[in-house]
Design a protein around this nucleic acid. Structure first.
Lengths: 113, 113
DNA sequence: CAGTATCCCTGTAGATACTG
DNA sequence: CAGTATCTACAGGGATACTG
């Protein structure tokens, strides 16, 4: 890693990597949808319930984008149900999401005031 | 942590924590500014140089917001220079930023296609 | 159930010029 | 050096109704 004891190896490169990640997870919903999927939601309505206040419109849009970015897969099962799953690729986002939840948890009070 | 082997403790709570964090780091610039500060930038123009393509307008706006959220501090030094520093509070965001950079680095190829 | 179709509004951010 | 002031644009997202 580049950040260590204020001795960055290549700040400009890290900026770019950070930007890439920000781009993928940008927007109000993507990370939440991924979290829902990580936690086991598979069906469209299931995801909609797991992600508070999301509209169908936004859910559809985001699912499509996430699929395009290979973060999730959409399949029709044998009994004709639609099933969403995160890809192995998206699984690698888990540590990032976990860190974000951790941070939000630990610093909730500070955020409020 | 809540995410572990598909057995979330409280998904709705985690959604909220995730949302809090997303809110704090939202926008195109905040994380980059924090990264610049973590890596040692202190002066306004220094930060402006460290964060590619940011305009003065955005830098000013974001610095103000970050200050309000207690993520950075702005002080005038004895020799009348403006000095920005991240707070201990913002230091705790480092693991999240590191995870994001890591992810961006590892998955750069996938993002490109 | 799994979505689409419209319509509309606001916030985020860019460009550019200016200031103490 | 460390910012502020305007003016503008567009994309992200909300509300609501509808569909196969």
């Amino acid at each position: 890693m580049a950040i260590r004891k204020n001795k960055p190896i290549d700040l400009q490169a890290d900026m770019k990597y950070l930007e890439d990640t920000m781009y993928v997870i940008s927007g109000k919903w993507k990370m939440k949808i991924i979290l829902a999927l990580i936690c086991g939601s598979k069906r469209y309505r299931e995801i909609a319930k797991a992600v508070p206040n999301i509209t169908f419109r936004m859910l559809s849009k985001e699912l499509k984008q996430l699929e395009q970015n290979k973060l999730i897969s959409r399949t029709v099962t044998m009994d004709n149900m639609i099933q969403y799953e995160i890809t192995g690729y998206a699984q690698t986002l888990a540590p990032t999401i976990i860190e974000m939840i951790k941070w939000g948890k630990e610093h909730r009070e500070n955020i409020k005031n």
